[in-house]
Simulated scan of single mutants.
Amino acid sequence: MRLLHTMLRVGNLDRAITFYTEVLGMRLLRQREYPDGRFTLAFVGYGDESDTAVIELTHNWDTGKYELGNGYGHIAIETDDIYATCEAVRAKGGRVTREPGPMKHGTTVIAFVEDPDGYKIEFIQQRTQ
C-alpha cells in the first residue's frame, strides 16, 4: 500500500491551482469536471501520481467557501533551502505565517505558509547527510 493523495475542498479552483503551481511550483497533473455531480477535481504535485503522493483539489460548484475544520493539520513539503523557498513564496504573493526556524522542542528547521483557502503548508528544511 502507499499514500495516493490528500484531498482539499477549495472555494475557487483557479485561484487554488495558481497557488499550488505558480507559488509552490507543483504541476497540474490532471483535471476533470463532473457536471452531474456539479464538481471538478484537479490533481497537483511535484511528480507523477504513479511515483509520488499528490494533492487533490475538489471544487464543488455550488460552494464558494469552506470553514477550516479543527481536525486538519497541514501538508508538509521538504525543501533544500527553506529561507529561499519562503522568500520565493512571499515574492509571488503567498503568505508566510511562520518564518523559518527550529521547531519548538527540537532542531528541525520548519516554516509555514497558507494557501488561498487558509490551508497550512509546512516547509521542512532537508537534512544534510
Rank of each mutant, 00 (worst) to 15 (best):
M1K: 03
M1D: 04
H5G: 00
T6E: 02
M7R: 05
R9W: 02
G11H: 03
G11Y: 04
A16Y: 06
A16V: 07
I17L: 11
I17V: 15
T18A: 14
T18W: 05
F19L: 05
Y20S: 08
T21Q: 09
L24P: 03
L29M: 09
L29G: 03
R30E: 11
R30Q: 10
Y34H: 14
Y34F: 15
P35T: 15
G37A: 15
R38N: 11
F39Q: 08
F39S: 06
A42D: 06
F43D: 03
F43C: 04
G45D: 09
G45I: 09
Y46C: 02
G47H: 14
D48G: 07
S50I: 00
S50V: 01
T52Q: 08
A53F: 00
I55S: 01
E56L: 01
E56K: 05
T58N: 07
W61C: 06
T63Q: 15
T63V: 15
G64V: 12
G64Y: 09
K65D: 14
E67I: 13
G69E: 09
N70W: 10
G73E: 12
H74T: 08
H74P: 02
E78L: 10
T79C: 13
T79P: 13
T79Y: 06
D80P: 03
D81P: 05
Y83E: 15
T85W: 13
V89T: 07
V89N: 07
R90E: 14
A91L: 11
A91Y: 05
K92F: 03
K92Q: 12
G94K: 06
T97A: 01
R98S: 03
P100V: 00
P102H: 04
K104R: 10
H105R: 12
H105W: 12
G106R: 14
T107S: 12
T107W: 01
T107P: 03
V109M: 10
V109T: 13
A111H: 07
E114I: 09
P116H: 02
P116W: 03
P116E: 00
G118A: 06
I121A: 00
I121Y: 00
I121E: 01
F123M: 00
F123A: 00
I124A: 04
I124K: 04
Q125Y: 02
Q126L: 04
